[in-house]
Amino acid sequence: MKIAVAGKGGSGKTTLAATLARLFARQGRDVVAVDGDSNPNLALALGVPRAQAESIPPVPRDVLVDRTGEDGKKMSVLSMPASDVIARYGITAPDGVRVVVMGRVGHAGSG
């Protein structure tokens, strides 16, 4: 089950996402939590100590490389298996949830 949690800032979506992730893990599920917010604080909400949460490196952009598909369209593909990305850049939060941080989004043109 692949779940996306959306909502306005301040709606509590991060607390909700983090709590659900840990509850799923307690049900015996193998859970990956992905912080796709440009102000990442999912790790903290999961219970990762602040110093550790702040030191999580965002997944570096060079794991994505541009390829031109058969249809001539440009697409981004991973330069390593995604499971390696999770293993290398993810950290383990309480209840065994693995958390991966996508990183900040720049303004148009800077990304």
């Binding site: 692949k2 779940i3 996306a4 949690v5 991060t14 859970v31 990956v32 939590a33 912080d35």
Partner: peptide, 12 residues
């Protein structure tokens, strides 16, 4: 690539 369950906290 995530195994069983993934939970993504999305942009506002």
């Amino acid at each position: 690539a995530a195994g069983d369950v993934s939970v993504a906290d999305m942009e506002a």
